[in-house]
Design a protein around this nucleic acid. Structure first.
Length: 464
RNA sequence: GGCGCCAUAGCCAAGCGGUAAGGCAGAGGUCUGCAAAACCUUCACCCCCAGUUCGAUUCUGGGUGGCGCCUCCA
């Protein structure tokens, strides 16, 4: 598989450190609020990456953290009149609620910063010992950026150019404007932990280094996140980690593009964001996942309701095709067309995998899936061999499963009242009382159900 | 100022050297009591100008127009 490595700015063959295994770390949410559509992209994209790697037979250790201590957490907790801990607990729960609905599987490990304070302190200690970090009289610890020669290698920034734009907040005792906090001394009313430098709390960047290395090892395969984390977050992670261990940190860096609104980056600071929770009121979140996967992950994509609707419609096509396969009539002796169809299935699978192998080109992979749907729809217009139909069903589930689509296949349930009306309509049709039949159909539509008369009889379908 | 990304039909989006996948929407048709779903047909010379090449949407240079990072941010 080829993936685009931000570090080298090229597509590279993914060769894991340990054959057959992939260790992967994705930066997770700061749990101070519901997450928005922009946050949802990496969750969905890297979940898909993980699913595909597993599909290809890798044993994947996938880590996504929760940042549950930082400035935003503290501020929000104060606003809400609650503790940072309680706030974190609450929004971790809310994260799972939304992530589940988006078809995002649980990570192998979801570490929380506050549960890794020991590792963080040890890492900061190492950096101080090695002369890469210094302690201020106030009890803050800063990383000395100029002590790490490779600084800027991920973002392609020249350290002196960065210097010009850097600023120092009043009260910060930095030796160099580029230096960043590893440990922040306690302030009144803030959560704190004991450390060799006095009470305090970790800086943002160090927690990801500490958690990723303690769970995945000092060198691991893939580090992923949004493009806006390239600088300074990931740059700082590299500096801290490699300065401490003397070993390469992550081997491949994957970064997803932004979600835009009216061509502008969606972000909390711009206030132009939609939370996933908001969208869930209007749409099944599976449509949001479809929307995200309809674009290759590195490209920016505009968000709008219209596009979610488009995604919803196209998802419907996939669902219908799968349902038709399920209802396909079986010809006991098979049919002459079975062999050609089965061969086509093999081609589609290859096309799908080729697309995914090319830097997770989900848009192209979906193209293969839609061709699959058309072929299957045509195929099942007549009774077919069981082997061919079964193969189609399992391959369809396999491929949609890789994308995390159509995974909730629980049978739709309809209210007894609606089913009763459906029977009445059918009776009216038999009696050729079509005006009554149509009236009932309208009534069902009022209730939110469409009627489809299939070869196997009339069916209800939930309208969205 | 430094670093980087993007420009393909009404909308979304693949392709990235041999003359444009797929989806949504639209039009016509088949099927249907009528619909719906499905199927068939139809719907683009790929921002502009040079250059390289037998041949460029695809490579190079220059424009134009969008966007991002350099500050918390997925």
């Amino acid at each position: 598989m080829q993936i685009y490595n931000t570090m080298t700015r090229k597509k590279e063959e993914l060769v894991p450190l340990v054959p057959g295994q992939i260790s992967m770390y994705a930066c997770g949410p700061t749990v101070y609020n519901y997450f928005h559509i922009g946050n949802a992209r990496p969750f969905i994209v890297f979940d898909t990456m993980r699913r595909y790697l597993e599909y290809r037979g890798y044993q994947v250790k996938f880590v996504q953290n929760f940042t549950d201590i930082d400035d935003k957490m503290i501020r929000r907790a104060n606003e809400e009149g609650t503790t940072v801990k309680a706030l974190g607990e609450r929004f971790i729960k809310e994260y799972y609620h939304d992530a589940d609905a988006l078809g995002v599987q649980r990570a192998s490990v979801n570490p929380r910063a506050t549960e890794h304070i020991g590792e963080i302190i040890a890492l900061v200690g190492t950096l101080v010992e090695k002369g890469h970090a210094y302690v201020t009289p106030e009890g803050d610890v800063y990383f000395a950026v100029r002590s790490f020669p490779g600084y800027g290698k991920l973002s392609g920034q020249n350290i002196d150019d960065l210097e010009n734009g850097a600023r120092v907040d009043p009260g910060e005792a930095k030796r160099d404007p580029l230096d960043f906090a590893l440990w922040k001394a306690e302030k009144p009313g803030e959560p704190s932990w004991d450390s060799p430098w006095g009470k305090g709390r970790p800086g943002w960047h160090i927690e990801c280094s500490a958690m990723s290395m303690s769970i995945l090892g000092q060198t691991f395969d893939i580090h992923a996140g949004g493009q806006d984390l390239i600088f300074p977050h990931h740059e700082n992670e590299i500096a801290q980690s490699e300065a401490a261990t003397g070993k390469p940190f992550a081997r491949y860096w994957m970064h997803n593009g932004y979600i835009n609104v009216d061509n502008q980056k969606m972000s909390k600071s711009l206030g132009n964001f939609f939370t996933v929770r908001d969208i869930a009121v209007e749409f099944d979140l599976e449509a949001v996942r479809m929307f995200m996967l309809s674009v290759q992950y590195r490209n920016p994509v505009n968000f709008s309701r219209e596009l979610i609707q488009q995604a919803e419609s196209s998802l419907e096509r996939l669902k219908t095709a799968r349902a038709r396969l399920e209802e396909a009539q079986i010809a006991p002796a098979g049919t002459p067309e079975d062999a050609a169809f089965t061969a086509l299935l093999d081609e589609i699978k290859v096309r799908f995998c080729d697309a995914m192998d090319d830097d997770l080109n989900t848009a192209d992979a979906l193209g293969a899936l839609f061709d699959f749907a058309r072929a299957a729809n045509t195929f099942v217009t007549e009774p077919r061999g069981k082997t061919a139909v079964d193969k189609a069903k399992s391959l369809f589930d396999e491929l949609t499963g890789v994308l995390g689509l159509l995974v909730n296949k629980k049978a739709e349930e309809f209210p007894a009242e609606a089913l009763d009306l459906l029977d009445q309509r059918q009776a009216a049709r038999k009696a050729k009382d079509f005006s009554r039949a149509d009236a009932i159909r309208d009534a069902l539509k009022e209730m939110g159900f469409a009627v489809e008369d299939t070869a196997a009889g009339p069916k209800l379908k939930k309208l969205s």
